[in-house]
């Protein structure tokens, strides 16, 4: 199911700054990573999806709705977690999230129930009656996530959810986001400038740079086909290459390394056997999973 679709989406700000140019992308439900450097246009994209700013040209549809003309319907189905601090210090989390639930159009009792629910899901059930001012950064990020969840949206827009968190906090937040995407049945767009971070939890990735689409695809499509086994032996590299070639494996040499594409699980064993039969001192045997990052760097250098 396509949840977000854009057609030649362009946003030019008053001063002639182009934040998004000609962005055409179809996004499937799931956990989606929106990556790009600071100022790449991620936040602009989110604001357009929320109907906060109108695009200069092109079209955007969220659940088939136009955020410009059908703002309320879109916002009822979307939850937004901004990047910056956005919590008043002198109220309790329960009260704050309830208030925002009511502003999303929930009736009073429903808002209260949903607020405790949302806080429970982000792991703040026990602390919810404490004032937000006394919370740690990690807890504050959770409150921000809870307020985005309170009205049970179908899509969450998370702007840098791991901002300011320590490694353990990051881990916990990412796991939580992944859980929301997989178990709650809510699609999540996670904005980040850290590719390595979102890559792990996302089903698909959209990379933008300077307002342009770099690449949008499913993570599996980006990484699966490129598993390569790197074999290094301290002597007899040529013999091994020959032996592997005889086993119908395509071998490429890269310095001291032999690179063999892994077509099947069996290939791994066959290579090991070949090494053992030749009685060669094996130095290294590791699976080279293509990182998503490599795909982007290759592209970027091509641009230059």
């Amino acid at each position: 199911m396509t949840i977000i679709a854009t057609q030649a989406l362009t946003k030019t700000y008053g001063g002639g700054v182009t934040a998004l140019s000609d962005l055409t992308v179809d996004v499937e439900a799931g956990v989606i990573g929106l990556v790009g450097a600071n100022g790449a246009g991620k936040s602009t994209f989110i604001k357009i999806m929320l109907g906060l700013i109108a695009p200069s040209a092109g079209e955007v549809r969220v659940f088939g709705l136009d955020p410009v003309s059908e703002t309320d319907q879109v916002r009822a189905r979307v939850g937004y977690m901004p990047e910056n601090d956005c919590l008043p210090p002198d109220v309790s989390a329960a009260e704050f999230v309830t208030h925002l639930g009511r502003l999303s159009g929930l009736p009073k009792t429903a808002a209260r129930e949903r607020a405790s629910e949302a806080l429970r899901h982000v792991g703040l059930y026990e602390e919810r009656y404490r004032q937000i001012g006394g919370y740690s950064t990690g807890m504050k990020q959770r409150v921000k996530l809870a307020q985005a969840l309170v009205h049970d949206p179908d899509l969450l827009l998370l702007d840098e959810p791991t901002n300011g968190l320590d490694p353990a906090g990051r881990e916990a937040m990412l796991t939580l986001v992944q859980r929301i995407g997989n178990e709650f049945g809510i699609s999540v767009v996670v904005c980040s400038h850290l590719l390595g971070e979102v890559e792990r939890i996302c089903d698909s990735l959209i990379a933008i740079e300077g307002g342009r689409l770099l690449r949008a695809d499913r993570i599996s499509a980006m990484t699966a086909a490129s598993d390569i086994l790197a074999v290094e032996v301290s002597e007899g590299t040529d013999e091994l290459a020959e032996a592997l070639a005889r086993l119908d494996l395509t071998v490429t040499r890269e310095g001291q390394l032999l690179l063999v594409p892994l077509e099947s699980e069996a290939a791994y064993d066959r290579i090991l056997h070949a090494v053992a039969e030749l009685d060669l001192p094996l130095h290294r045997l590791d699976q080279r999973r293509h990182r998503v990052a490599e795909l982007f760097t290759a592209k970027e250098t091509a641009d230059v």
């Binding site: 937004y80 901004p82 910056n84 956005c86 925002l100």
Partner: peptide, 10 residues
């Protein structure tokens, strides 16, 4: 900074 939370709602 709570306004972005308000104005991302109806």
């Amino acid at each position: 900074g709570v306004l972005p939370l308000y104005f991302s709602r109806p």
